[in-house]
């Protein structure tokens, strides 16, 4: 809303609003892309450190510019479309993936009142967009006209739909607890005052058991190791993007990392107080909220990356058992427990 008034002097208000929104969105996307570029390097550095390697260290100081060098390489390579592929769907799939990955960020509150779309059903929007992510993978798998890609698409459809169920119930417990579907309200509900304000975060409430479930489901939902059966290289070469090269591959790669960052942001917002500082005393609470949120995103991304490096890949039936027989009953039970707690403890009876 920064530029609306300035533009409104020269043109009708509606156009000024649209123009300022477009400028803000472009700036936001560029910031997001730069963050993802460094997140990519961060991921590789963590993976290298676990294996006692150095990781990328040639391009720039400490390899800081590695992602940008990779970007240049992806952009100038030739786009190869397999002969038997369904051309339109083949090229549409990475676009769908990347667009959805970007679109989800529109409801993430960066700070108090710092959000593009402060919609009442923000958490449902996130859930809807993340449940659409499977389309990019299915379309890619089908359109590639390759056995490996198709098997990977089948796995992805089953896996992502399964884990969405438990993610959905975790979201229900959080929104019951906060009493709102608006992400900013969910963060504000975790606000406390003074040195012990951290105790107001959802992670220190009755919602605590939902944190590991959400974390593991998020890994499964983003198809990251140890749940990367969708792109299990020992069986499926590279899964759904085995036929992709150059820029379409870059879009998939980007979408994957944007989704992991989004999941990190969601862990921060749902359980760790989003933009809030852990201790509400000076000078910690003078730091802008967006810095806290980014710090939390990087911290949870670190956890995702470390899990990737440490844990061996699950077998497919184990993955399904975990989703349907462990997470679903637990999260369903916890919806009841949270609802009962809200009514009987917080409100003192119906």
């Amino acid at each position: 809303m920064f530029f609306v008034d300035a533009f409104a002097k020269h043109m009708p208000y509606a156009w000024a609003w649209v123009l300022s929104q477009v400028i803000l969105i472009v700036v936001f996307l560029v910031c997001l892309l730069v963050m993802v570029a460094f997140i990519l390097l961060y991921d590789r550095k963590i993976f290298a450190a676990v294996q006692m390697r150095r990781g990328p260290n040639v391009v720039g100081i400490f390899g800081l510019l590695q992602s940008f060098a990779d970007l240049g390489k992806y952009l100038i390579k030739e786009v190869i479309i397999p002969a038997g592929a369904n051309k339109v769907v083949f090229l549409l799939a990475p676009l769908v993936s990347a667009t959805l990955a970007f679109a989800a960020w529109v409801v993430i509150p960066l700070d108090n009142h710092w959000v593009f779309a402060d919609i009442n059903v923000g958490i449902l929007y996130l859930f809807a967009v993340s449940s659409l992510g499977v389309y990019g993978i299915i379309m890619a798998g089908w359109a590639s006209n390759s056995k490996y890609a198709f098997l990977s698409a089948c796995r992805a459809a089953a896996q992502m739909v399964s884990y969405e169920v438990s993610i959905g119930f975790v979201l229900v417990t959080v929104l019951l607890f906060a009493g709102s579907l608006n992400l900013s309200d969910i963060v504000r509900a975790q606000q406390g005052v003074g040195a012990f304000s951290i105790l107001h975060w959802n992670v220190f409430s009755i919602l605590f058991p939902m944190l590991p479930i959400f974390f593991v489901s998020a890994i499964a939902e983003t198809n990251r190791p140890p749940f990367d059966l969708v792109e299990a290289e020992s069986e499926l070469v590279a899964g759904y993007f085995v036929e992709y090269s150059s820029t379409p591959f870059l879009l998939f790669y980007l979408a994957e990392f944007l989704n992991i960052c989004l999941m990190s942001a969601m862990v921060a917002i749902l359980f760790f107080g989003g933009w809030l500082s852990p201790i509400d005393i000076w000078p910690l609470n003078a730091i802008p909220g967006v810095i806290w949120l980014i710090a939390k995103i990087w911290f949870f991304f670190f956890l995702f990356a470390v899990v990737r490096a440490f844990v061996p890949r699950y077998r497919y039936d184990q993955l399904m058992r975990l989703g349907w027989k462990v997470f679903l009953p637990t999260s369903l039970l916890w919806v009841l427990v949270t609802a009962a707690w809200v009514i009987f403890v917080r409100h003192g009876g119906a």
Binding site: S131, L132, V161
Partner: peptide, 11 residues
């Protein structure tokens, strides 16, 4: 709108 997307499109 969101439920339409979640249920019909997403599932």
């Amino acid at each position: 709108a969101m439920i339409l997307v979640v249920v019909y499109v997403g599932a």
